[in-house]
Simulated assay, not measured.
Amino acid sequence: MSSPLPLAEEHPPARRRLGCVAAAIIVAAIVAVGGYAGLHWFRSGMDLGGPVCHATAGGETVTFSPEQMDNAGTIVGIAMGRGLPARAGTIAIATAIQESKLRNINYGDRDSLGLFQQRPSMGWGTPEEILDPEYSTNTFYDVLVTVPGWENGVVTEVAQEVQRSAFPDAYGDHEREGRAIASTLSGHTPAGLVCRLDAPIRHTETEDLVGDLERQLGLTATVSADSRTLSLTLGSEEQAWSVGQYLVAKAERHSITAVVVDDRSWTRASGPSGLTWLPTDDPVGAHTVTATLTPQR
């Protein structure tokens, strides 16, 4: 017959203490690993498999919601339409992330409003004007281009010259995100901007889409007679990628289901395929962009 197990109080005290210490270390390690994983999950955009957009440039990937990337498309698109360098987009995006998290919000500190938290009382415009993303973005650039040396200046210092914020050091915290988004949307980084989206729930308002392209990018698009395809012929491959990735950023707003640039295509999907540009069997040429729209039934 085997020997009876000793009672708890018969265990050597030192061994018990060592066991408790070891258990505590193991628990602490599990908590630390879990905390790190949770922090990584939070910083990477809390991707739970729903709609999301990524911008990848220079080995950096940043993650935002379709709403945020839509606003980013407006901000960088207007910079391109005004003939400004990608650096302008970087500064504007970094500023908007700090001020509003890239959302067109109707509240803020005191009377601050919109993407850039501009204040009517400080002469930025009426509340209605400031809450128009195109207006607020253009007014931001109107001031930016008057700042001496803005093209090569430090993001924090240049943005502060425009915004006159009470927290001037915060803008530089978002330069990495601003650079990745601006690099893709300006066309410097091809095939870097993607969005995973659910199926469209409404048809494409072609007049709204064509109007956005004209007002923001200064471009004229052609829409097919059946309202299924939009096409543009651009002056360079870089501009084609700028427009193509702008259309992906605007895909949720305008119910776009596919974009083709040269020999690569992005196809709207709620799964992993929505997060990549793939080779296409029907290339359109290095200077051409096409978008597949959702026609009215």
Rank of each mutant, 00 (worst) to 15 (best):
M122I: 06
D281S: 14
Y246T: 05
A269S: 14
A182Q: 00
A22D: 07
T229K: 09
W241L: 02
P13H: 01
G73C: 08
R119Y: 13
T292I: 05
T220Y: 12
G218S: 09
V243Q: 03
N71Q: 12
V261T: 07
A23T: 12
G244Q: 00
W277R: 00
R215S: 01
T189R: 07
T146E: 14
T90P: 04
V261I: 08
A37D: 10
W266P: 03
G49M: 12
R43S: 08
E205L: 09
E205C: 05
G187V: 05
G77M: 07
P13D: 06
T61Q: 14
G274V: 02
K101A: 14
E177G: 00
V289H: 02
V210L: 12
E151M: 04
R16E: 13
A8K: 15
E128Q: 15
L102Y: 00
P283L: 10
E205N: 11
A180P: 05
D263H: 07
L217S: 00
D198T: 08
F167P: 00
P85E: 05
L209P: 01
V52N: 05
R15I: 12
P51G: 07
S186A: 09
A79M: 01
A182H: 01
D208F: 06
G153P: 01
A249I: 04
R297A: 11
V52Y: 02
R268E: 08
K250C: 06
Q118T: 01
F167N: 14
E252L: 06
E177I: 02
